[in-house]
């Protein structure tokens, strides 16, 4: 594999083919847990880890598994990995686990993971597959964290609240309070706020894409006109 191929994989995962913003997969946990940054980060990292491991395993066994049984085999792999991660989180990140609750086991049903196994890992070698899992997971995590930040600032007036759930006792004073005695903005905390926030993020991405495209065509026409002038 060449370098630009790895670049392509990274770009796809983070932006062009982002699981949450473009493929619109895994929205249920995404919308449900993004009340705060830390919740979003927790679920994002768990999903990323699942993606990396499942992509790696699927890539390793891609010649062994026959097309007829591939989907059940992929589902088995994903389910086992997620269950193992769930147990590990319950053991070592207990507080965060109680906050994220049902959404950890529900990572199994995040179609984004099966989609990557089927569309990418089952057709590519180990390294690109791991990178794809990492980048897709990172893209998903970034969206979770962004949405979590928007909702936390609007809803609670804070940022990084409850950091100690993830980073231990040291992180107790990491909370940034933006507005003292903020009474809260209920809409941002409730599910409708998640949908609205998600819609705005997707809209923003589309605006940026359009802007970039315009710039590209502009420079292209400029080059054309300047060459014409030269002629």
């Amino acid at each position: 594999m060449k370098d630009d191929n790895y670049n392509e994989i990274s770009k796809n995962g983070l932006w062009n083919n982002n699981v949450a913003l473009v493929q619109l997969l895994g929205l249920c946990p995404l919308l449900a847990v993004t009340g705060t940054v830390i919740n979003g980060l927790g679920l994002g990292l768990a999903t990323m880890l699942t993606l990396i491991i499942s992509n790696a395993v699927v890539s390793l066994i891609r010649h062994l598994v026959r097309p007829e049984v591939r989907v059940p085999v992929f589902v088995l792999i994903i389910a086992s990995v997620v269950t193992a991660i769930e147990l590990a989180m319950n053991a070592w990140l207990y507080e965060l686990y109680t906050v994220l609750g049902i959404f950890i086991p529900l990572i199994v049903t995040n179609c984004g993971i099966l989609a990557r196994a089927e569309a990418f890992a089952s057709k590519n070698r180990l390294l690109p597959s791991i990178l794809d899992g990492l980048m897709m997971g990172l893209g998903f995590t970034l969206v979770l964290v962004t949405l979590g930040a928007i909702r936390e600032i609007l809803g609670y007036g804070t940022l990084f609240n409850n950091s100690h759930l993830m980073f231990g006792e040291l992180a107790h004073n990491w909370t940034w309070v933006f507005i003292e005695d903020y009474s809260g903005f209920l809409l941002a905390i409730l599910p409708p706020g998640a949908f609205i926030g998600m819609g705005l993020i997707i809209a923003l991405k589309n605006v940026i894409d359009k802007h970039n495209k315009k710039k590209q065509t502009n420079t292209a026409t400029q080059i054309v006109s300047s060459t014409e002038a030269a002629v």
Binding site: L64, V65, R66, E68, V69, P72, V73, L76, I77
Partner: peptide, 8 residues
């Protein structure tokens, strides 16, 4: 195929 599935 069945055996592979069982193995996994």
């Amino acid at each position: 195929s069945g055996l592979i599935l069982g193995l996994f």
